[in-house]
Amino acid sequence: MKLERIPVFVDHCSKTYDDGTRGLQPTSLQVEPGEVLALLGPSGCGKTTLLRLIAGLETLDDGGRIRFGDQDVTQRPVEQRGVGMVFQSYALFPQMSVAANIGYGLRIRGVAAAEEKRVVGELVELTRLNGLESKRPGELSGGQRQRVALARAVAVRPRVLLLDEPLAALDAKLKESLRGELAELLRRLHITAIHVTHDQQEAMAIADRLAVMRAGVVVQIGRGEDLYRAPIHPFVAEFLGRVNRLQRTPGAVAQGLVALGGATLACPPDWRSHTTLLVRPEDIEVGPVGQPGWGAARVEQRTFLGDRVQLRLHAADQAGLLVDVARDTVFQAGDEIGIRIAPQHLMACQEASA
């Protein structure tokens, strides 16, 4: 099935509710043709509000514009915007077969039966639902229902596909197995898609880029790996995984150093003026105590997590540090160990106003 690939432009859009609550601060972003963009953030951050504005389910404040390609859809109702939507519940008709669910949108638009059958057959093939055409939703697995919902949403050839927490209702294990499948399906459809989620791993697995939101504001946009490794805001660093905060005294700042367990390491030139630096738990090395250039710390807690061991450390010149190490590590609570951080793993976050 050939679908239109268009960019989406959100220009200075905001939303204020009747009681004066600001659901979305003035926001601008662009979704590239055929791109999957995730709106990621905690509950109440404005991501669903932004999705509903794009869909036409909410009216935006004066002064904002939304364009699909070269068409201004700001004043168009949802039924005239050409969007397909997949909801958390999938909203499939339980009494209808898979084929009838997929073809429903075509049928109510008066599409000829032969054309409906052709499109449904094509989508059944594309979403790997072969042999399930006569089944009803209650007879399908969670992953199969998800594929039916996607197929139904794109059957009418929407210009933009909107997904509102499509995996939220699934248990953790099923969610993990289905996010890769959803990512593959979206790539095969080649459609511009906007995906709302509060799950960091889901967003990074599915989307080409992430727009991380907080308190009605898009804090940072970029590829998941770039946001994880080079956040520009402390919230982004802490929301996309875990971080340790390394504090620097005025003397250490003046000397361009970072103190770590009685040792020092050179601060990257770009971060010399920062009094706080960040480092991921997996980027702190541990080893025998007493190695030249290494700091020292004491293991306060050892937690086995299956694929890794998490150590909580106490170092004389830093607050408690979390470190992720291999699951076969010999270090136990009470041990004195050596610690080291490669300077290139240090991150500095510029505080923002939001």
Rank of each mutant, 00 (worst) to 15 (best):
F9H: 15
F9Y: 15
F9A: 12
F9E: 15
F9Q: 14
V10H: 05
D11R: 15
D11S: 15
H12I: 03
C13L: 12
C13D: 03
C13R: 03
C13V: 15
S14G: 15
S14C: 11
S14N: 12
S14Y: 06
K15L: 14
K15W: 04
K15E: 05
T16P: 13
Y17D: 14
Y17T: 09
Y17W: 15
Y17N: 14
D18P: 12
D18S: 15
D18Q: 15
D18Y: 10
D18L: 15
D19Q: 13
D19G: 12
G20S: 08
G20F: 11
T21C: 07
T21A: 14
R22Y: 01
R22F: 01
G23Q: 02
G23L: 06
L24T: 03
L24H: 03
L24G: 03
L24W: 07
Q25Y: 13
P26K: 11
P26A: 06
P26N: 09
P26M: 08
P26D: 09
P26E: 07
T27A: 08
S28E: 02
S28D: 03
S28P: 05
L29F: 15
L29Y: 02
Q30D: 12
V31L: 02
V31F: 01
V31Q: 01
E32V: 00
P33A: 11
P33N: 02
P33T: 01
P33K: 01
G34N: 10
G34L: 06
G34Y: 05
E35F: 01
E35L: 00
E35Y: 01
E35T: 00
E35H: 01
V36Y: 08
V36L: 13
V36W: 08
L37Q: 00
L39A: 06
L39P: 04
L39G: 09
L39S: 05
L39H: 04
L39I: 05
L40H: 03
L40T: 04
L40D: 03
L40C: 13
G41W: 06
P42W: 07
P42I: 04
S43G: 08
C45F: 09
C45Q: 08
K47N: 03
T48K: 09
T49I: 04
T49E: 04
T49D: 03
L50F: 06
L50Y: 01
L50K: 00
L51K: 08
L51F: 05
